[in-house]
C-alpha cells in the first residue's frame, strides 16, 4: 500500500459481507471452516486493518447443529483483535438440502453490503462453484473470481488484484456493489482462536426454505480416484528434464483476444465450442 493513499482510505470504510460455508477435511471428512471461505474472511480482515471503518458481517445459510456450529465457530475465532465487531454471525436457518441461493440473495438484497466475498467452491454438497455466479445473476452485481487482494476503495470503486494462472496478476477496477470469489491465490487464513470462537454468538434468522429440487434428483456417490495422465518426457539433458517437471505444459494453439467487443468475444467462444463439439 502506498502511504499517500492512507488518508483517503481512512474515509473509505465499506460494508463487507463474507459468505461462509461448512467445510470438509479432505482426509477425515470432519466438518471444519472451509479453506477458501476462510481465505475470504482473511481478505476481509486484512481490508478492515487497512481501511478503518470497514464493517464485516458473516453470513451462513444452513441448519444449526453441533458439528456445523463448531465449524462455523472456526471462522468466528479468526477475529481476535479488539473492536473487530465479529462477535456474531448471521445464520440463515434452513434445513439440510435446501437451496442456499434464494435465501442468500434475499438477505443480501435486504442488507445491501457493498462487497460480498465468498469462496470459489464449497467443500461439501454440490461443490459446483456456481453459487457466486448465481448470486451475481440474482443481484445483478459484477463478479470477480480468483481474487488475490483488495488494493483500495475510492468513491465507490474498488481496485482489485485478480490472480491468473502461473502467477500472473491483473488489476481491475470494479464499481461497487460487487461480488468477489477467492481461491488458493488469496492469502492463507489466520489461526482460529478458541476463546473468541467460544464467546461469539449466532443471530439466527429464519428463512422460507426452498428445497433444492434439482439436487434431490441427483444420485450422489463418493468420487473415484481417476488415474493420472502420465507425462512422458523425452529429454536429453538434466535441464530439459527439470524444465519438464517444473513447468506446466503450454497450451497448444488458441488465440489471445485483446480489445475486442463483448460480441466479438462471444463469437470467438461460440466458434471454439462448436469446433470442440461442446455445442452441436
Amino acid at each position: 500500500m502506498q502511504p499517500d493513499l492512507h488518508q483517503k482510505q481512512q474515509q473509505q470504510g465499506i460494508d463487507v459481507a463474507v459468505l461462509v460455508s461448512i467445510g470438509r477435511h479432505p482426509t477425515t471428512g470432519r466438518a471444519r471452516r472451509a479453506e477458501q471461505d476462510a481465505r475470504g474472511l482473511e481478505l476481509a480482515l486484512a481490508m478492515e486493518a487497512e481501511l478503518p471503518g470497514t464493517r464485516i458481517s458473516m453470513l451462513h445459510a444452513g441448519s444449526q447443529d453441533d458439528s456445523s456450529e463448531a465449524a462455523l465457530r472456526g471462522y468466528l475465532g479468526m477475529a481476535t483483535g479488539v473492536g473487530m465487531g465479529l462477535e456474531s454471525m448471521t445464520l440463515l436457518e434452513q434445513p439440510e438440502g435446501s437451496d442456499a441461493i434464494p435465501a442468500l440473495a434475499k438477505h443480501l438484497a435486504a442488507t445491501s453490503p457493498q462487497l460480498v466475498i465468498t469462496g470459489a467452491r464449497a467443500e461439501r454438497g454440490e461443490g459446483s462453484g456456481l453459487l457466486p455466479y448465481a448470486l451475481a445473476e440474482h443481484l445483478g452485481w459484477p463478479l470477480v473470481n480468483s481474487l488475490a487482494s483488495v488494493e483500495k476503495v475510492e468513491n465507490g470503486v474498488v481496485t482489485l488484484l485478480q490472480a491468473l494462472p502461473r502467477g500472473q496478476r491483473r488489476r481491475l477496477k470494479v464499481r461497487l456493489p460487487a461480488i468477489i470469489s477467492v481461491d488458493e491465490a488469496a492469502p492463507a487464513a489466520r489461526q482460529s482462536a478458541f476463546g473468541p470462537a467460544r464467546r461469539a454468538t449466532f443471530e439466527i434468522t429464519p428463512t422460507s426454505p426452498e428445497a433444492d429440487s434439482e439436487l434431490a434428483q441427483w444420485h450422489l456417490a463418493p468420487a473415484r480416484k481417476r488415474p493420472k495422465r502420465l507425462k512422458i518426457v523425452k529429454a536429453a539433458s538434466a535441464r530439459d528434464r527439470f524444465k519438464a517437471a517444473a513447468s506446466k505444459s503450454e497450451g497448444k494453439g488458441g488465440q489471445v483476444l485483446t480489445d475486442v467487443t463483448p460480441e466479438q468475444g462471444a463469437e470467438a467462444i461460440y466458434k471454439l465450442l462448436k469446433e470442440e463439439d461442446v455445442l452441436r
Binding site: 475465532g77 481476535t80 489466520r190 476463546g195 473468541p196
Partner: peptide, 12 residues
C-alpha cells in the same frame, strides 16, 4: 494461543 490465535510458525 486460545485468545489471540498467535501460535508462531507451524503451530497453527
Amino acid at each position: 494461543t486460545l485468545e489471540r490465535g498467535k501460535t508462531p510458525n507451524k503451530g497453527a
